[in-house]
Design a protein around this nucleic acid. Structure first.
Ligand SMILES: [Zn+2]
Ligand SMILES: [Zn+2]
Ligand SMILES: [Zn+2]
Ligand SMILES: [Zn+2]
Lengths: 161, 161
DNA sequence: ACAAAGATGATACTCAGTATCAATAGCCGA
DNA sequence: TCGGCTATTGATACTGAGTATCATCTTTGT
């Protein structure tokens, strides 16, 4: 029931320091942007992150953006979220937390859900398949309460909202 | 319990005819290759399909391969399977059948499993989120019985096997 | 302040997938 | 069977996301 507070910039910066990596200006700028989005519950792509970061830090290179996203993903702060149309975007999460995402196929809102496959189901699979399970990926799709009020067809682009 | 027989080429060709589309030579060749892989339980990418088809039909264009895969996917004969490393490949399935995939992260073997999220879990999510659920995507990862015997690290490429 | 190692950013490149379009091949009616 | 209509094809050029390279710039420890 403990509502985990949104990941903030300092947590990510601290993790970088703990990993023995350097606290550089580009990393800080990119992390600040990601943290802002995290609080707003907004997901993003590398390209979007790059463009947004350039508003306040035009000197940041595209490569660095990709590198930083990969780094944060490795540190466990970024999850790839899959949408109904198959597109994938990044989402800031608490490292180590196991949860899944429910995305609105109309407005692309992302909600973290803490349900998972029941252990017994995993047991069954493991027994009947002979596989040793090591992980899974679960994404739920639907229409959020707001979007249920409209009759508009499902959108393709992410520019909505 | 009825073990669904593997999808064969004729089923796919019939579906194309029923959709009012034309039974062309490239489509036939590509479908034959996919059907062969279906029986063998092999998954593939568009690029792989193209190369393989060229052995027996060097005149097939790359574009046509992409178009045919898209067509078959629309007709429900192809599922995108996700692997532990994030790569995605196609897998022939019975159209309309709801199931999920379990992939071996060492040899990339794909197994269809018929378990799913329990209805009550979906109910819970629906109630607590306010979303109207429209679908989901579930992929399980593990090591198949064969690969459990080895201690080799997880592979990256698909060329194994 | 200095050298070593880490990190950066410009550039060029790869790779999967898409767009275009003239040429081809099924289909159907005469 | 013929001829025209249209779906389909395949060559080509293009896009966009991500990667590789490498000289230059920073951070850090001494
Ligand atoms: Zn919505
Ligand atoms: Zn889970
Ligand atoms: Zn295996
Ligand atoms: Zn399911």
């Amino acid at each position: 029931m403990t509502q985990a507070r949104t990941v903030n910039a300092d947590q990510m910066k601290a993790a970088i320091a703990e990993a023995g990596l350097r606290p550089t200006r580009p990393r800080a700028a990119l992390i600040d942007q990601m943290a802002a989005w995290a609080t707003a519950g907004t997901d993003f792509t590398c390209e979007e992150l790059w463009h947004s970061a350039q508003a306040s830090a035009p000197w940041i290179g595209r490569s660095t953006t990709f590198r930083t996203v990969e780094l944060l993903a490795d540190l466990g702060f970024l999850d790839r979220v899959t949408f109904a149309d198959g597109s994938e975007r990044y989402h800031v999460v608490q490292p180590g937390s196991h949860h899944h995402h429910l995305t609105c196929e109309m407005c692309h809102r992302v909600v973290e859900i803490d349900i998972c496959l029941p252990a017994e189901v995993l047991e069954t699979v493991q027994r009947s398949s002979g596989f040793a399970l090591t992980g899974h990926r679960l994404e739920l799709f639907g229409r959020c309460s707001d979007c249920q009020r409209h009759t508009v067809p499902v959108i393709d682009s992410v520019d909505a909202e």
